[in-house]
């Protein structure tokens, strides 16, 4: 009797130990869990530090502020998973806002203007994709080139200076709300859900992972590598175009200087979110968390009145931290 009791308590201890162990393992094994915890800790700290932080309005502001960069970051996640990179996204944001503005001011209807904008953005993606996948040129180089090229075209189209435009519907997209939630947040969530679904459940999504994992194996397995990679850059272009439309809708203007440095902001969020620079690995949920962490840090600093120069320093620290963690994890 005594012995069996003893063994029972031993077993209970063992089970308890297993639970704590499992919990610890989960935390240490899943990067996403760690990121979520970091996010929560950040929210808690900032709530203590500033009375204005933990309010619905502020959270809405944070999400609203991440809509444009978030959409780009989701696309960038897909591009990195395919073992590519797209540095032209910031320029495409400006270029699409310019196309939208100019077409509306030229008296074209909104549907036509939106169509032209989206088509223009996809064309840039097609251009990048052609060089990257058909001519097999390093995506870093090509998109570095198109970054400058597209920015230049944006300036040429609009004539150097930002120009305002007016459209009720666009205005509503930029600053309207539905059920108390701003429209750009719907756009952000819609892109997240659709792209996550595409990446996880479709042949295309799995091919992107496969190509990023091992392009040669992909080719020998019968994957149409060229077509898939072109498509990746086209979707990236489309998403940058949507981000550009949102930005134009928030500012009621076509701004050729908009979106400067967005490519690096997106990369920061994506890498912080655990996507591997070598390709083949990464998840949009991680990118969402990465984007939120960056936004929380910046927002918190605004709340606390930290000067802009110091914010730049902290952003740099986040990038270096994210990179170091990413490298060490491999």
């Amino acid at each position: 009797m005594n012995t069996s009791e003893k063994s029972l308590t031993q077993r209970n201890e063992k089970i308890q130990k297993n639970w704590t162990q499992k919990g610890l393992e989960l935390i240490s094994s899943s990067y996403l869990v760690k990121l979520s915890i970091a996010c929560l800790v950040l929210v808690a700290l900032l709530s203590f530090a500033s009375p204005y932080f933990f309010t619905l309005t502020n959270f809405k502001d944070i999400l609203l502020g991440t809509a444009v960069i978030g959409i780009i970051s989701f696309g960038m996640t897909m591009v990195l998973i395919s073992d590519g990179i797209d540095l032209s996204v910031g320029s495409v944001v400006a270029y699409s806002s310019v196309i939208l503005c100019v077409s509306l001011n030229a008296g074209l209807g909104l549907p036509v203007a939106l169509f032209l904008t989206v088509a223009g953005a996809i064309t840039v993606g097609l251009f990048n994709g052609f060089f990257v996948s058909v001519l097999n040129i390093n995506p870093f180089i090509i998109t570095l080139g198109s970054m400058s090229l597209v920015r230049g075209i944006a300036y040429i189209i609009i004539g150097g200076q930002p120009k305002p435009f007016d459209s009720d519907i666009i205005r509503f997209i930029g600053s309207g709300s539905l059920l108390g939630i701003p429209i750009p947040i719907y756009a952000l969530l819609l892109v997240l859900v659709v792209l996550s679904y595409v990446m996880k459940y479709t042949q295309f999504g799995r091919n992107v992972y496969a190509i990023g994992n091992n392009q040669e194996t992909a080719r020998l397995s019968g994957i149409n590598v060229v077509k898939t990679r072109i498509l990746v850059y086209c979707i990236m272009g489309l998403l940058a175009g949507i981000a550009g439309i949102l930005l134009a809708a928030q500012t009621y203007a076509g701004i050729p200087a908009a979106g400067m440095g967005y490519e690096l902001d997106a990369l920061t969020a994506v890498i912080l979110g655990g996507t591997c620079l070598k390709g083949g690995q990464g998840r949009l949920a991680g990118t969402l968390l990465g984007t939120l962490i960056v936004a929380l840090v910046l927002n918190g600093q605004n709340m606390l009145g930290v000067p802009y120069f110091y914010q730049l320093v902290s952003k740099g620290i986040i990038i270096i931290f994210a990179m170091t963690v990413a490298m060490k994890r491999n």
Binding site: T202, N207, A210, L231
Partner: peptide
């Protein structure tokens, strides 16, 4: 993956 290539890119994987 190789068999999946017989399907269209946008088709959903039958898990």
């Amino acid at each position: 993956i190789p068999k999946g290539q017989k399907k269209r890119l946008y088709s959903v994987i039958n898990r």
